[in-house]
Design a protein around this nucleic acid. Structure first.
Length: 191
DNA sequence: TATGCGATTGCCT
DNA sequence: GGCAATCGCATAG
């Protein structure tokens, strides 16, 4: 099955692919990989399966959505064999279909490149909500398509991911070079 | 039961 | 570049 590989392998293959939600389609330009229990302290699945992260432990090829900062929703593609809990966070992309609807949903966005530049902006532009958690991405309303040929990519440390000791974690952020929709890199906020 | 904080964003100086 | 907004959940006591 397509997504039955660790998120670090699936992540670069998603670049240049698309996610469609009803009439809106986005070309994926930036993603991040998160692995599972005991491996990746930056991952929601680093600790045991709980209320918040249970979808990450479910079957691959499904959507994992979570609520953060008391106001934002982010979307992931669940990867790896069931039970291994790895996922790819969809961080940014370019709206290639249904741009009028995306603009209507993202009223604070002044320019089109900002419509889905950032993980929480992306879910708003596509109309993804917490109710879409667990959705199968190969049939139905929400679909993910990989590009026919893998595109060239770059990789570096993940954005906003804190780490014990404060240094950047694994270089598991992947993006398409030169794309204006790629979100700016930020270190984890200091307290 | 109380406390701290996050895979962020948008507005302010 | 700094910081408030806003709340569910994990952790500590």
């Amino acid at each position: 099955m397509l997504f039955e590989a660790p998120a670090t392998e699936v992540a670069p293959r998603l670049l240049g692919g698309t996610i469609s939600v009803d009439s809106v389609t986005l070309r994926i330009t930036e993603v991040e990989a998160y692995l599972g229990v005991g491996i990746d302290p930056g991952s929601h699945a680093y600790r045991r399966k709980g209320v918040k992260n249970s979808t990450m432990f479910g079957p691959p090829g499904h959507l994992y959505t979570y609520f953060t900062y008391g106001m934002h929703v982010c979307a992931n593609v669940v990867c790896s064999p069931e039970g291994k809990a790895s996922a790819v966070l969809l961080r940014a992309g370019e709206i290639v279909e249904g741009i009028d609807l995306a603009r209507a949903r993202r009223l604070t966005s002044r320019v089109d490149v900002d419509l889905a530049r950032g993980p929480a902006r992306l879910t708003v532009a596509l109309g993804i909500t917490l109710g879409d958690d667990g959705t199968d991405l190969t049939t139905g309303r929400i679909r993910v398509e990989l590009p026919r040929i893998q595109v060239p990519f770059e990789q570096g440390p993940r954005t906003g991911v804190s780490w014990p000791g404060g240094e950047p974690s694994f270089p598991w952020r992947f993006w398409i070079p030169g794309e204006p929709t790629v979100s700016p890199y930020r270190r984890a906020a200091r307290r």
